[in-house]
Each structure stands twice: as structure tokens, then as C-alpha cells.
């Protein structure tokens, strides 16, 4: 078993009378790309929000090993609309410990395909451009653990492929761990090394890519539906 980077133990979150996440236990390992799969309202985003601290669990424990840095893009990119891309990156650089950041903004923006729009204010960006910049912000500090919530939302087909290749390269070469929540299951199937299937706030199944390929299902969608009992 590879080194663990984050561990959730019996984590539960309730909103009023509704249990959004119920006794969730997960261990995520370094260098893997986890696809978080579930219906709307299954608890995917709630889990991500609890890991970052945006939401506090009602019970259970979340452990981050080795004081790992976390990069996030949850629900929407965290960008200041009145600033340009470079200014947003400067803001986040100022927040971070400078060691371990990408050397230049040009290097980082080129990674996500935003080399040409440095001077434009973010409020004038398209959805896809904001998404790319949000990914750049998540990767700025070369974090050990990255959470991306619908990362290819709004991206053109070229952008989807670019982000997929980037994620896979960073996982392989830099040992970054990714937790990606997406409804685009065909795309997730081409990216992830492992899958976590969630339904009604509970982890229903964890499965690796190799194990999934041995299953008698035509696609990740079919497998997902069979796990949650809707096939």
C-alpha cells in the first residue's frame, strides 16, 4: 500500500434533519487520482468542503499527514473579478510560503492554457477561462493534495484533454494526489486511477481502475448505476 496522505474516519455531517455524509471512512494514497462519483446531493462536495475546513464535521476525524499542502477548486473558482490573472496569482503567492511555488506566472498559466490573457480582468473571462485560472490557483503551490470539483466544467474539448494530461502528468511525475468530483464519467474514466462511489452520504464502493476493467460492465456509468442499485 502506498503512503497515505489523508484519512477520513467515520466522518458525519448533518444539515438540520438531513444527513449529508454518514460515517464516511476513506484513506487516500499519494500519487493516485481518485474519481469521486455520485448523484446530485450524494455528499461529494460536502466531503471536499470538510477536508478543506469550509464545513466542519459533526463527528469523526479528518487527518492530513505530513502537513500536506492542499490545492482546491470547489464549486467555483476562487478568483477576484476586478483583478487580472497575474494579480490573482500574486494574491495567492502572497498567501503561500514561497518555497514550492511555480517559479513564474507564465509557467503556471501556460500549464493551463492561459498564456495570452494576462492583462484581462477576470470578470471579463468566459466560464472556461475562469475554470482554467481556478485550476492554476489550485496548483500554484505545487500542493501534495489537490481537490477539483467539476474541473472540466465549461472547458472546450481541447481544454478537457489538456487538463486530463496535466493531472495525469502531475500525479506521475510530482506524486500529487488528486480527488476529482465529476459528472462527466467518460472523461473521469480516462483520468482516474481509483474510484469512490458515494450514494446518500455513504461510501458504497471503492475500486481501482484495474479492478473496474475486470468487472463485467460496459462503462463506468453502468458500473456506478449497478453499485447504487439503479440498474
Amino acid at each position: 500500500m502506498a503512503e497515505a496522505i489523508i484519512n477520513l474516519r467515520n466522518v458525519t455531517k448533518r444539515y438540520g434533519g438531513c444527513t449529508a455524509v454518514k460515517e464516511c471512512s476513506l484513506t487516500l494514497e499519494r500519487g493516485k487520482i481518485y474519481g469521486l462519483v455520485g448523484k446530485n446531493g450524494a455528499g461529494k462536495t460536502t466531503i471536499m468542503r470538510m477536508i478543506t475546513g469550509l464545513s466542519l464535521p459533526d463527528s469523526g476525524q479528518i487527518e492530513l499527514f505530513g502537513k500536506a499542502e492542499i490545492g482546491t477548486l470547489i464549486e467555483a473558482p476562487s478568483l477576484n473579478g476586478s483583478m487580472t490573472a497575474k494579480e490573482n496569482l500574486k494574491f495567492y503567492r502572497m498567501l503561500s510560503d514561497k518555497n514550492g511555488c511555480y517559479e513564474t506566472d507564465e509557467e503556471l498559466l501556460a500549464l493551463v492554457g492561459l498564456s495570452d490573457i494576462k492583462r484581462k480582468r477576470v470578470k471579463d473571462y468566459s466560464l472556461g477561462m475562469r475554470q482554467r485560472l481556478g485550476i492554476a490557483v489550485a496548483l500554484l503551490t505545487k500542493p501534495e493534495f489537490v481537490m477539483l470539483d467539476e474541473p472540466v466544467n465549461g472547458l472546450d474539448p481541447i481544454g478537457v484533454v489538456e487538463i486530463r494530461k496535466l493531472v495525469k502528468r502531475l500525479a506521475e511525475e510530482e506524486g500529487m494526489t488528486f480527488l476529482i468530483s465529476s459528472h462527466n464519467l467518460p472523461e473521469l474514466y480516462q483520468t482516474a486511477t481509483d474510484y469512490i462511489i458515494i450514494d446518500k452520504g455513504m461510501v458504497k464502493k471503492e475500486i481501482s481502475q484495474e479492478e473496474l476493467e475486470k468487472e463485467q460492465h460496459e462503462s463506468l456509468e453502468e458500473y456506478f448505476l449497478s453499485v447504487i442499485g439503479e440498474q
Binding site: T52, G53, L54, I70, T72, I74, E75, A76, P77, S78, L79, N80, G81, F91, Y92, L95, V137
Partner: peptide, 17 residues
């Protein structure tokens, strides 16, 4: 307010509330 509207609060939450 702008920290919450722009969600830049996500970038500082690691410092602790």
C-alpha cells in the same frame, strides 16, 4: 464581504478561523 462573494476565503481557510 468580497472574501465570501469571490470565494477567496477558500484560499485562507488553511490559516484557521
Amino acid at each position: 464581504g468580497s472574501d465570501f462573494e469571490n470565494k477567496t476565503i477558500h484560499g485562507v481557510i488553511g490559516f484557521g478561523r
